[in-house]
Amino acid sequence: MQLTPDETILFTLGGIGINETIVNTWLVMIVLTVASIIITRHLRPDVPPNRWRTTLEVIVTAIQSQIEEISPRASRHVLYFSGTLFLFIALSNLLLVVPGFEPPTASLSTTAALALSVLIAVPLFGITRQGIRGYLKTYIEPSVVMLPFNIISEFSRGLSLAIRLYGNVMSGAVIAGILLGVAPFFFPVVMDVLGLLTGLIQAYIFAVLATVYISSATATHGKPPEKEKDQ
Score class of each variant (00 low, 15 high):
F88T: 03
I120W: 01
G126L: 01
P104S: 02
V60I: 14
P123K: 03
F101G: 02
V118K: 00
L85Q: 03
T61A: 09
W52P: 05
L91R: 00
E57N: 14
A113W: 07
I59Q: 03
A112L: 15
V60F: 12
I140D: 04
Q64H: 14
P99E: 07
S107L: 02
D46V: 03
I140M: 10
R164G: 03
N93C: 12
A112Q: 06
I152D: 13
L124Q: 07
Y80F: 13
T55A: 15
V145H: 14
A162H: 01
P123G: 02
T61D: 11
E57L: 15
N50V: 13
I70H: 07
R76N: 15
T128Y: 10
V97M: 11
Y139V: 05
T55V: 07
A115G: 02
R53T: 07
S36M: 08
I152F: 12
I37F: 09
I63V: 11
I59D: 05
T105R: 04
L95N: 01
T55G: 15
L95T: 02
Q130E: 10
S65P: 08
E69T: 14
I151F: 09
Y80C: 14
F155I: 04
L56F: 07
F86P: 00
R133F: 15
A112W: 06
L85F: 09
T105N: 10
N93P: 03
T105W: 03
V31G: 05
H42T: 10
V118A: 00
E68I: 09
S117H: 00
A90L: 11
E68A: 08
P48D: 09
V34M: 02
V58W: 14
S117G: 01
G131H: 05
E102H: 14
S160Y: 12
E141R: 14
R73K: 08
A35F: 03
R129S: 08
V34F: 01
L114E: 00
S36G: 11
A113M: 08
I152V: 08
H42E: 10
L91E: 01
A62N: 07
L96K: 10
E102T: 12
S156I: 13
T110V: 13
F101E: 02
Y135K: 12
S156W: 14
G83S: 04
Q130H: 12
A62I: 04
T40P: 01
T110I: 10
M146N: 08
T111Y: 01
E154P: 14
L94Y: 02
N150P: 13
L136V: 07
E69R: 12
P148K: 06
T55F: 13
Y135L: 11
V58A: 13
F101N: 01
I70E: 01
L119M: 03
S82W: 05
P45E: 02
L56N: 02
A35Y: 00
T40L: 06
V58N: 14
S160L: 14
F86A: 07
V118H: 00
L108P: 04
